[in-house]
Computed example of a mutant assay.
Amino acid sequence: MEDGSVHRLVLISGVNGYIAAVTAKQFLDNGYSVRGTVRKLSSAQPLIEGPLKSHAQSGHFTVVEVPDITVDGAFDEAVKGVTAIAHMASPVSFNFTDPVPILHAAIHGTKTLLTSAYTHAGPTLKTIVLISSIAAIRNQTPAPYTFSETDWNDYAESEVQRLGTDTPGPVIYSASKTASEKAFWEFRDTVHPSFTMTAINPVFVIGPPLIAPATPAAVGETVQSIWDVFRGAAPAASPVVLSSTVDVRDVARLMVYPVEHAQATDGERYIASSATQHPQAIADILRKAMPEARGRIEEGTPGVGYREDWQADGKNGYAVDNRKAGRLLGGWIPFDESVVDTAKSFVGLV
């Protein structure tokens, strides 16, 4: 940390979420205190009584209830005394059917937090980091094309306006992330706050959750491809929603970085992307690393359909430029390590 202090207080909204929980642990393990927000206090009990128990007992991990993040003043109390904020509370699903409440939560949740931070956090607040998404970057530029932090999604919001409740779930999600991040930067450009502001834009996030899923139904959408192969589905039958992936622990490291390097990252976006997933690669990795599951995991066609370095083969004409964030981290967690660690969280489900 820049000033060498310990237990500076970070507010993490939606702390019980998949990425947010891992981010909370990353901050705590690096000497910060964390105040998390949840809609209901009961939803944080698995963290308090589980992997973050020692931090809770020491008082360095606390949780407050914010029932509705879109209500004006919702975060007024939560932001007091914090030195940094990681805004991570936002609807996440590819199966949304009604865009209205999703966009409302994404946009107004961001606006209310920023307003509370500006008016109630006080001079201790140094930086706010937003978890955005590659969905706010990917657009319909014809292939071949490499997406970078300068790109913006230029179609999802208009599609929502055109199609309403007929809008496909992934497009609704993309529109919500785009609108949320636009609101984030609009606030910065309009208000010119004293605190710095940074956005992290992950691709499909894989890697081990802080709390293993208790049932198959609890398996997260972004690790569904790994779960499908692990439970015995044929690799050829396991769909990949998005091929670009990044480990959740790398995303957590990226969320911490702007807090420790506020001025250097002010006003910046960072794409978090490290590998390209393929169901056959997942099968090959797991059959080698977990011989006890080999009889269940379908063999498929070993070695076919992916590169050994887990990078994009360029066949679809699109790529993602991950160099900007990669320079901050000094390297990414290898894809095979992410796959194996994710699968270990499924062991009790089959």
Rank of each mutant, 00 (worst) to 15 (best):
I134H: 12
M88V: 04
T110F: 02
D76V: 02
T124N: 13
G81V: 06
L114N: 05
A78R: 00
A143F: 04
A143D: 07
L125F: 06
A86G: 14
G81K: 03
L103W: 04
S116Y: 06
T150A: 10
D76E: 06
Y118A: 06
H120V: 00
E149W: 01
A84N: 12
M88T: 10
A86D: 13
V129S: 12
A89L: 02
V92G: 06
H104F: 13
D76L: 04
S90W: 09
P123D: 14
T115W: 08
Y118E: 11
W152N: 06
Y118G: 00
S133R: 07
T112F: 02
H120W: 03
D76K: 00
N139F: 02
E77P: 01
E149P: 03
S93W: 02
P142F: 03
K126D: 13
L114S: 07
P144F: 11
A117S: 12
A84V: 11
R138W: 01
K126T: 13
K80R: 14
A135Y: 09
A135G: 12
A136Y: 04
H120N: 15
G122Q: 11
I102H: 09
K111M: 15
I134M: 15
F147Y: 14
T83Q: 14
G81Y: 07
A121C: 13
A86Y: 13
